[in-house]
Design a protein around this nucleic acid. Structure first.
Length: 595
DNA sequence: GCCGTTTTCGGCCCGACTGTTTTCAGTCG
């Protein structure tokens, strides 16, 4: 039996969608595409799903009916299916490569193959450079030029950008646009507003009577590299940093509808439009409109100025942007069961902070003062332990010395009326066998024991999971730091069964960290949601290695909100006293383990 | 090909911009 990964399935199913599109087949493309999207979101391998429950289990995947289930079954068994092979034979090209070129879609790719035998990026580039593309019907000089530019861009390999990296740029551009006379709202929508961990492009919405001046300012910004499109209500540019930025101008009375529409997600919007149709409305970026019973003519606008208006017209409560992913939020909104998400600015402590004792940039005192400045009432200093030699990790002896320094800093801060308490903590390595890098005697001297994996990333899923659970069983352990170890776009998470880890965390009274560092954001949203459902407790930490890093906490809150977390699951929304009490209260296992 | 709180048949989200064309198909979000 072939070992077919979800990644492979997604590729074949979306290619099938493209192939159907090429031949002008109606409706099937969207059907296959949707299934590919759902599988991409799946936390489980479809192979496992099928092994356990057969075709019936496959049909639990949304949009998988009889036909596609059969095709998936064939892919799992043979690596492909006849329909796919048949279509593939007609246009045997590297679809993943060619579809990655902006401006090229199924129809163009088919034409390029039929007329010029273009199969991949290199033959595309050769034909463009030789001027052959410009000569084709429905192509021209400009299309050819555009293709060459897109090839250049794809070679740079820039895809999505970390939210944390994009934010300063967005602020700058928003400021520029706000200075244009007679501009009303300037709001960045899209995945940025939904606070996704990465952002594909920047979508800025502007309200103004006259879009021309806005566009003039926008297209002439120093950040702009190339203009991709420019109209009176919509323009798009590639910025020098590589990211695409779009501006849309709408009238004030459409602001809410446009904001709703451009915030997405796309799937969320599609759901909303279907609801609108059922109610006899039409929803677009200009508002909610009545539709004439017989004619399809648009009637009066019934909503559009605010998002609240739009959602209300559809019989829904407005929901936080972070929830808009078409994963149950619409049903919850209809039932009045939207979660009351944890609010920005509601963290009172930070439980993972490194100092210059190991790999941090600043002293304990500097970190404490910066934390106070950032509005935090307490931080835990959690330097690495000895197993991490490259960071000069602390051994038991230096940990004791550090404890004394923390006492001194606390006394100093009190004297100077700086209201931030420093807790003694550790980011203790979990060793290969699940034991900890410090003795229990040393751990007992601390207020907070955080543990994390920094080595042996390549263990099997079973070994890694057992290793971590063994560490969680130690009754002195309070928090599991960055539970999956991933670094966004840099390092895959290690193989670990997060469902088991979450259950173990609940059982052994360990809080799970949402690490707010922009390239970590670990746990990710789906795990947070599962943790919340299972009753696990969470903490949100900056993992600060420098005084400037406390501002990262907001990214952690975004992450928590996308995982449907409320204040009550996040322990560091409590005061320091309450927090420490709550941590202790988590450990029903103290007795079980004979403490 | 999928789906059902008006449906097991008849629908399937919607609009802006581009380029090449002379009225619109293709792409994108």
């Amino acid at each position: 039996m072939h070992q077919v990964s979800n990644h492979d399935l997604v590729r074949i199913l979306s290619e099938m969608a493209t192939l159907y599109d090429m031949e002008g087949v109606a409706f099937k493309p969207r059907a296959y595409e949707k299934v590919a999207e759902h599988i991409e979101q799946l936390d489980r391998e479809v192979t496992d799903l099928y092994r356990e429950g057969g075709v019936k289990a496959l049909r639990t995947i949304p949009n998988v009916g009889e036909g596609i289930a059969y095709h998936i079954e064939l892919i799992l068994k043979t690596g492909t299916f006849p329909e796919y092979e048949k279509y593939k034979k007609r246009v045997p090209v590297k679809l993943d490569e060619l579809m990655g070129i902006g401006g090229l879609g199924p129809k163009s790719i088919k034409t390029l193959y039929a007329r010029l035998k273009i199969k991949d990026l290199s033959s595309l580039e050769r034909a463009a450079r030789a001027g052959k593309i410009a000569k084709l019907a429905r192509f021209g000089e400009k299309s050819q030029e555009k293709i060459l530019k897109a090839i250049e861009f794809s070679k740079k390999g820039v895809g999505r950008f970390l939210l944390g990296a994009v934010e300063p740029l967005v602020r700058t551009i928003e400021e520029r646009l706000r200075r244009v006379p007679d501009v009303g709202h300037v709001t960045t929508a899209g995945s940025y507003r939904r606070r996704q961990e990465t952002v594909g492009d920047i979508d800025i919405l502007v309200t103004a009577k006259n879009g021309k001046r806005v566009m003039e300012e926008f297209l002439n910004m120093p950040e702009v590299e190339t203009v991709l499109a420019h109209g009176s209500t919509k323009s798009a540019v590639r910025l020098k940093s590589g990211i695409q930025c779009d501006v849309r101008v709408v009238p004030e009375e459409s602001y809410g509808a446009a904001l709703q529409y451009f915030t997405g997600s796309k799937e969320h919007d599609v759901e909303l439009r279907k609801i609108a149709i059922k109610k006899g409305f039409k929803l677009n970026e200009y508002g909610v409109f009545k539709v004439g019973a017989r004619s399809q003519k648009l009637g009066a606008r019934v909503a559009g100025r605010t998002e609240e208006e739009v959602y209300r017209a559809l019989g829904l409560r407005v929901m936080e942007p972070e929830l808009r992913t078409a994963s149950g939020e619409i049903e919850a909104a209809r039932a009045g069961k939207l979660p009351k998400l944890i609010l920005y600015g509601s963290l009172r402590g930070d439980l993972q902070v490194q100092s210059s004792w190991t790999d941090g940039n600043n002293s304990i005192e500097e970190m404490a003062r910066a934390a106070a400045e950032a509005g935090l009432e307490y931080i835990a200093i959690t330097d690495h332990t000895k197993g991490l030699a490259m960071t000069r990790g602390l051994d038991e002896k230096r940990l004791l010395q550090q404890g004394k320094e923390i006492d001194r800093v606390n006394a100093e801060l009190r004297m100077k009326n700086v209201e931030c308490r420093v807790l003694r903590g550790t980011e203790c390595n979990i060793l290969k066998d699940g034991k900890l890098d410090l003795t229990d005697a040393a751990l007992k001297t601390l207020d907070i024991v955080g543990v994390s994996v920094h080595s042996h990333f390549n263990l099997s899923e079973r070994e890694q999971t057992e290793r971590i659970i063994r560490a969680l069983k130690n009754p002195l352990v309070n928090i599991l730091f960055h539970p999956t170890g991933r670094k966004i776009q840099k390092r895959e998470p290690y193989a670990v069964d997060m469902s088991k880890i979450i259950r173990a965390a609940v059982l052994y009274g360990v809080a799970l960290e949402i690490n707010a560092a922009p390239e970590r954001l670990d746990l990710k949203d789906t795990h947070i949601r599962e943790a919340v459902e299972r009753g696990a407790k969470l903490v949100i930490d900056s993992d600060a290695h420098a005084t400037a890093h406390f501002k990262w906490l907001d990214f952690g809150i975004s992450q928590a909100r996308r995982g449907w977390a409320t204040k009550k699951e996040v322990l560091n929304t409590l005061s320091c006293e309450e927090f420490l009490k709550a941590l202790k209260g988590l450990t029903p296992n103290e007795i079980r383990h004979g403490m």
